[in-house]
Structure formats: C-alpha cells, structure tokens
Amino acid sequence: MRRRRWLVWGGIAVAVGALALWARARINGLSTETQATNPIVRWEWVFLREDTPSELWDATLQHLQLTLTAVAMGTVLAALLAAVALRFRWTFTPITAFTGFLYTIPSVALFGVLRSRYGSWVAALVALTSYTLLVLVRNIVAGIDGVPRSVTDAADGLGLGRVRRLLTVELPLALPVIVAGLRIATVTTVGLVGITAIIQLGGLGQLIFDGYNTDYTTKIVVGSALSIGLAVLLDLGFHRLEVLLTPWARRRSS
C-alpha cells in the first residue's frame, strides 16, 4: 500500500514537471508566427501576462468561498434534518423525499429563478446548499444506523444518555460514512459552482464562460484545470481529516 501511494505521487510529480518543462519550451520557442495560429493553450497568457496570477487567484478564491459556504450550510442543515429523522423515524421518508425533490430541480433553472428574486450570492448559496442536502442527510442517517446494535447496547449499559451516546459513540463510528457523503457533496458542488457563472458569479466558471464567449480556449483550459484541481484537493483534504479523526481505524488496519 505504501509503495503504491509513493508510485502515485511520484507519477503526479513527474507529470507536473514534464508539463512545466514543456510549457517553458513553448514560451521560449514563441514567435509571431506561432502566436498567430490558434493554439488550445497560449502559455504566454498563463505565465507572462501580468494580471493573470491575481485574476486566477480571485476566481479560485471565489470558487472556494462559494463551495465551502454551501457545503458548511448544507452540513448544518443536513445534521438538523438527520437528527429529526433519527429521533422521529416516520419523518425519514418525507425528509428524503423532500431533499430528493430539491435535487430534481434543474440547477440552471433554480439559479435563474432564485436570481430573479434575490441577489446573485443568495441565489447561488441557496441553490448550492439545497443540492448538498440529499447526499448529506442520507449518509448521516445511514452512518448512524450502521452502528452495530451491540455497541449501542453497550453504551446504554454504561449508562450513557441519548445525547451522549450519539455524540461520543455513534457519531465517531459513523464518521467514515458521513465523510464519504461530505466528499461527494463537495466535489459535486465544485462542479456546480461553475454553473453559477450564468448569474454573474461562478469563480472559475466565469473564466470558462469568458473563454468561450471570446473564443479563447486558454481561459477554458486553465479554469477547468484549476477547478478539477480544487475538487481533488478538497477531496484529499476531507480524506485526511477522516484519517485524523478516526485513529482507531488506522490502528486496526495496520
């Protein structure tokens, strides 16, 4: 396992290094002729243009801001809904049906409709948050349901109250499933944030739209690469968090 991980990281490092070398070679080899053709990526825009770093940074930051705010709000709401569903079992079906219904509303349409009543930020956040709910609620409930009966019985036997049992026994054991939901929600949201470009937000999505509208593929490629990178980074971050928060799982497997 350790060796495989080393191979993966080594592969990524080699790929990035090769790309950088190639990009450098491209820049150095640039002449007016090569610029006149229509390459997919104009490296001079990425590396030599002065405004590029700050523009990219702003876009990435906005993307990150929208994603994290939406996921955080979604997590709080989903935790409340899941708590209700766990306490009063009969509410589980209506709650999943409702979150499922929210998920069915087309994103492009929802952004548009909400934008017609509220500002861009409110519209984007409400829509993005509502899309995270389905996965989060379902995974929180399934995670806590998946705690073995014997464990909860033992907790009861130790005299833990309902709240303490939930917080100190069930929640830690359900963590892997909950984090799995969180990871899916985050990665999906990173993609959806791109669509908020249609209501003049969108972070990296705005870059992609600009690139399309001006027929400038460089912006599309760079925006997409950053967006994918962001998704991968957040995914890895949550994975790390899970590993850190569940030390017993590591101990057991090694």
Binding site: N38, T188, G191, G194, I208, I220, S224, I228, D235
Partner: peptide
C-alpha cells in the same frame, strides 16, 4: 468515478463546442 465527478460540465461543453466548430 471520482475524476468524472470532479470534471465540470461547463468545461466539457465549452471545449467540445469550440473544438467541434473549429
């Protein structure tokens, strides 16, 4: 599956449309 989830549709659409038109 994970990478597929991470690729934004906006990207694919933009690049494919431009590539297709060109």
């Amino acid at each position: 599956v994970n990478i597929g989830r991470a690729i934004p549709t906006v990207t694919v659409l933009g690049l494919l449309v431009i590539a297709s038109l060109r």
